[in-house]
């Protein structure tokens, strides 16, 4: 069949020539998203945004490594890890929308919230450093998140439990990747040892925040839906200890950087880099708010 122009061809009522998409947008399509009994939908939505924003924002930092990694294999690894986290973020943001009960989808949360509405930990948003900083941050982030997700597989919310069960499999590979590089760098040359040591020192002040529960996490933890992050500290310390010993590195000693009046990432109080990150992440969607692709 011939057409006068390309536009006519792609808008024709015969989808045998379609190229991209049939409008599918909801990653939770067909999943039962009823909020568990005894739980406030707003709390569950806030909790899903916390875990979802951690993944979305750190994934963005990992994407900044595309074309900047030291080796092709690491370029591919970092991009894959970023993609896994982006997938986790999409599921969690979509789950937040369903828990909230309105018609907000993942794009609303990712592109049309202001900085103070993002609930990710500050560790996720720190500007990209060198490869030593990347490995240090990925080690801390994935060790923490894996410990949370492994516990979250028991959540009374079946959707969260399912997202966590899937995430555990992915995070296991992320943590092993970071741990093996940490050992290689720490037990490598004088220079590589210096890079990973400095990397760990730069992210360490943000680790306490990972284990400081927000009231929503405590309330939902009591209800058997969320994980109180302080419960994961011992496992985190044990895993980090194994890695640091193998890497012949000392445990970093750097004082925690507190939030503002006790408020940090989980309460929407972020560091300077966050505004720049969002400006890039949100620019296209905000310039063309009605666009679909």
């Amino acid at each position: 069949m011939s057409f006068d122009n390309a536009y006519e061809a792609i808008t024709e009522e015969n989808d045998s020539r379609w190229a991209f998409g049939t409008g599918f947008e909801d990653p939770l399509s067909g999943v039962d998203t009823t909020v568990p009994s005894g739980v406030e939908g707003a709390d569950l939505a806030a909790y899903c945004l916390m875990l979802g924003d951690d993944a979305l924002i750190f994934s963005h930092r990992l994407q900044e490594w595309c074309t900047n990694a030291p080796e092709l294999e690491d370029e591919v690894a970092i991009a894959n890890i970023g993609l896994d986290l982006l997938g986790q973020a999409r599921l969690l943001l979509a789950r937040a929308g369903k828990a909230e009960g309105g018609d907000r989808g993942e794009d609303h949360y990712a592109f049309f919230r202001a900085e103070h509405e993002f609930r990710n930990v500050r560790l996720a948003e720190l500007p990209r450093g060198d490869f030593g900083e990347l490995i240090a941050r990925l080690l801390v982030f994935s060790t923490w998140r894996l410990a949370l997700f492994q516990r979250l597989t028991e959540s009374r919310d079946p959707v969260l439990a399912a997202i966590a069960a899937k995430g555990v499999k992915e995070l296991t590979y992320h943590r092993d990747y970071a741990a093996q590089w940490a050992v290689r760098l720490g037990d490598g040359t004088e220079y590589s040892r210096e890079r990973i040591t400095e990397g760990l020192a730069s992210v360490w002040p943000y680790t306490d925040e990972l284990f400081t529960p927000h009231p929503v996490e405590l309330r939902l933890g009591e209800a058997g839906v969320a994980v109180d992050p302080s419960a994961a500290r011992a496992e985190f310390d044990d895993v980090l200890g194994q890695v640091l010993r193998a890497a012949t590195l000392d445990t970093p000693e750097a004082p925690a950087i507190p939030g503002v009046a006790g408020r940090a990432g989980r309460a929407g109080v972020h560091t300077e880099g966050m505004g720049y990150l969002l400006a890039e992440l949100q620019s296209v969607a905000r310039a063309h708010p009605e666009a679909t692709w």
Partner: peptide
């Protein structure tokens, strides 16, 4: 995988194949 970018295409391919085989109404669930 959570981030599997092929999910959308799988859906589209399933809908397309089933419609082509004469099934007018198709729903793909996750």
């Amino acid at each position: 995988y959570s981030g599997c970018p092929a999910m959308d295409t799988m859906r589209d391919d399933l809908v397309h194949a089933l419609r082509g085989a004469g099934y007018a109404e198709v729903e793909v669930r996750t």
